[in-house]
Design a protein around this nucleic acid. Structure first.
Lengths: 106, 106
DNA sequence: AATTTGAGAAACCGAATAGTTGCATATATA
DNA sequence: TATATATGCAACTATTCGGTTTCTCAAATT
């Protein structure tokens, strides 16, 4: 059971769940109302999200509130950082080209 | 064949390929040397990466050079932006708490 | 106490996935 | 021209995945 954050966000339904519970905690039933699948299917998605710590649970009687663990999202950001560095440096290169062209115009 | 960038980066081998060809173009053979799978398996990964425009090809005789299409990576960044907003606002809230504490100390 | 409700677990199913082996084709090289 | 090399594609396979249905269990509600 290789639970990996990248695998977790690969599924569109799971990304939708993430978006739903990003700002306020929700129960599986409430989440499932937003989809055309069964509650059980949503439950499985929540399990996967929980297993890779993207989501935390809060027990309240027989209800379980799920909420996004925003800290975990930073891991994606961290992975992306190495590539951001690349596209930013390219942008700077383009910037240089543009300013050179401007100078030539003068 | 729903090719989706999130599905593309879900596989660890594909993420490794992305890292390899981020800075310099490489042929499938050269890429495959870095893994313990067959060249054909790498070829399939490259196909998936190409299908969702994460990678571009450059033909050079019988060789094909693959290189990362860095622009496409920004799509992940765009998706992440909504969550970055959340964790940054939380950080600011923490910031406020800290500055309030500081004031009280004074 | 009996019933309803919220939720997870298990068993099953079809489709997708990642890998393999084998083959076809085009370009270099001898 | 014959051979070697680089690559993609097709067929096959085992495993994983996302979904459903059925079941169990615990907490509310009557």
């Amino acid at each position: 059971m290789r639970r990996d954050i990248f695998q977790a966000i690969a599924d569109p339904t799971r990304r939708a769940i993430i978006a739903l519970i990003a700002l306020q905690a929700m129960t599986p039933n409430a989440i499932a109302e937003n989809f055309q699948t069964t509650r059980q299917a949503i439950s499985k998605h929540l399990r996967i999200l929980t297993e890779c710590d993207l989501v935390k649970q809060e027990y309240q009687g027989r209800e379980i509130y799920y909420m996004l663990e925003i800290e975990k999202m930073k891991e994606i950001d961290k992975w992306l950082a190495q590539y951001r560095k690349i596209w930013e440096s390219r942008f700077n290169q383009l910037d240089q080209v543009l300013s050179t062209l401007k100078k030539q115009k003068k």
